[in-house]
Design a protein around this nucleic acid. Structure first.
Length: 428
DNA sequence: TCTGGGGTCCTAGGACCC
DNA sequence: TCTGGGGTCCTAGGACCC
């Protein structure tokens, strides 16, 4: 049976979510900002048309905002996360074999459907998602993930496709590759793109014609796999079922203002440690090592960028927040330099293992409190926070809610779907 | 004044072992 | 005095993705 894969993704996902609940934003140049209202990470077609690039710092478009020519929103992840799960549950009606690849896209296995139906299935997906969630999406269908990505690119780029492209036919694949710049291929980033251009490879068609051995020698096995995929051979497999556990868990943020004291740093990083460990427990994993880092503002010319990281380790794997908090203060005392203004910090958990395969210290007396079968303080803390809201209960070192190292979010929309007071009222 | 956050995979090179 | 080949594990750094 010929394998068939569809890639469905939402157009300008964060912007579309904002537009669903605020129709005054429809057909307008709209951008959604990164954390801390730093730069633009999602743009509507109208904003792109004004020449505003992805990643443009917010201050560079402030004049357009003030003149009312564009609209901006802070990123509202509770809203986007909820809209994402609605989107995915509509897609699940078409096949149970669905891999959520990111917040706004999913790969679907459509193997077994007759070729002539693929286009109409794609159109039905698009219509149903729009009808049920209000999100506009694009659908690309082909035989490998890289080709499905390419089909999806065409669905977005060429309006005549009406957002759905069936790229299972080799003839159509070839025609599209001939007019697609090599940098648009999934897996070819900026660096590799430049090197390919320098070697005279400008289109996807020229890339697919390359000798695999040559690609491997001159570039890497990673790019070789991309070429195989373009040639119709599946090399990038679906993630194994149940192995969606991460290999590292990170929590890092830019601070709302520059931090000069070790006390403020301590409070901010305690918050990140707390969040990272929560994520760890959600995944039912344990960690034995971690990295803590702080950094000054790399964009300030007047001071040399400063910072540092330190590796921390526990005697045995744990999902408890507290041991890391004990290590925080001494670690910060090593990293912190008086007189530096810190702009960002973070905490990364490494060396993760599954909590079911926990191996305690044979000689430890008494037994480890996190050993299987023990109800820990952390379980209770998570349960209370789950019921009453994040950070309702938190380590004292995190401090109180309103501290000015927290993110700037001046243009935040409401949590229309996840907070009772924010739900829209319709007056008739 | 103002420039995101969270991941993955691969490779090269060093240390060490037999 | 001369000197090999094969392997593992770890880490840092580079590249990519959304």
């Amino acid at each position: 049976m010929k394998p068939v894969i569809a890639l469905c993704d939402a157009n300008a996902f964060y912007c579309s979510c904002e537009q669903v609940f605020d129709p005054s934003l429809l057909n307008r140049p709209l951008g959604v900002l990164s954390n801390n209202d730093g730069c633009i990470i999602s743009r509507t077609r109208e904003l792109k048309a004004l020449g505003v690039a992805m990643g443009t710092p917010a201050f560079k478009v402030r004049h357009l905002l003030e003149r009312g020519e564009i609209a901006l929103r802070s990123s509202n992840y509770p809203l986007y996360g909820d809209m994402s799960s609605r989107f995915m549950s509509v897609l699940e009606q078409f096949t149970p074999d669905l891999e959520v690849y990111s917040i706004d896209e999913a790969f679907l296995d459509l193997s077994g459907f007759p070729d002539e139906q693929l286009g109409s299935i794609g159109r039905e997906m698009k219509e149903r998602v729009y009808l049920w969630t209000g999100l506009p999406i694009g659908v690309g269908i082909s035989t490998t993930r890289t080709l499905a990505k390419l089909a999806n690119y065409a669905a977005k780029k060429y309006s005549a496709t009406e957002g759905v492209v069936d790229l299972t036919s080799p003839v159509r694949q070839r025609r599209l590759m001939e007019i697609t710049p090599v940098g648009e291929v999934w897996g070819v980033g900026r660096r590799i793109g430049k090197r390919l251009e320098a070697a005279g490879i400008h289109t996807a068609a020229q890339l697919v014609d390359c000798q695999r051995k040559w690609i491997r020698r001159e570039f890497s096995v990673v790019l070789e796999r991309t070429v195989c995929e373009l040639q119709g051979e599946r090399c990038i497999a679906a993630d194994d079922q149940g192995s969606d556990n991460k290999h590292q868990i990170m929590c890092s943020r830019s601070f709302g203002k520059r931090i000069k004291t070790i006390e403020e740093l301590h409070s901010a990083l305690a918050c990140y440690i707390s969040r990272a460990c929560e994520k760890l427990r959600e995944q039912k994993q344990l960690a034995r090592e971690a990295i803590l880092f702080i950094r000054t503002d790399p964009f300030r010319q007047s001071t040399w960028p400063m910072g540092g990281s330190i590796r921390l380790a526990l005697p045995e794997p744990s999902a408890d927040t507290r041991p890391w908090l004990y290590l925080l203060r001494p670690a910060l005392e090593k990293l912190f330099h008086e007189g530096c203004e810190y702009k960002k910090g973070g905490f990364v958990l490494l060396d993760l293992s599954h909590s079911q395969s926990f191996q305690g210290d044979l000689l430890a007396i008494p037994p480890h409190p996190e050993a299987p079968g023990k109800e820990s303080v952390m379980t209770v803390l998570d349960a209370i926070n789950h019921r009453f809201g994040r950070n309702m209960l938190r380590p004292a070192s995190v401090g109180f809610e309103k501290q000015d190292w927290h993110m700037n979010q001046q243009l935040l929309s409401r949590c229309y779907t996840t907070r009772w007071p924010d739900i829209l009222r319709i007056n008739t």
